[in-house]
Amino acid sequence: MDLNRMSDTKKLQLCRWYFKVGFVLLPFVWAVNSIWFFKEAFVRPPFEEQKQIKKYVIMSGAGAIAWAIVLISWAVAFQLQRVSWGSTGDALSFIVPLGRA
């Protein structure tokens, strides 16, 4: 989709739609939304729908960052602590490590 050829109303609809879809545990949609509409929200000269788009872009971005913090902390904690968690650590592993703890 080329945003340039889209009317501002359509853009707002699309941005809102992406924001809603992100609630279905899809943080990547939020991330895409915040980057995709960043120019529309902050760079372009003001237009009617810009305020709302700005709102959705900020909220999508915040949501994506929150998710990222959670996921990264889990990944780091899992990598560092898996061995000491013992059987729980093995049960949580998708690929059982061979030849090491």
């Binding site: 013992g86 059987s87 093995d90 592993s93 998708f94 690929i95 059982v96 061979l98 030849g99 703890a101």
Partner: peptide
């Protein structure tokens, strides 16, 4: 001479018994 098992019998028997989706390996 790469060995699959590690740590101790408790760990390796547990890993042998668990059926991971991709690697149902006996260690």
């Amino acid at each position: 001479s790469f060995m699959y098992a590690a740590v101790n019998s408790v760990v390796c028997l547990r890993r042998s018994a668990s059926s991971a989706i991709l690697t149902p390996t006996k260690v």
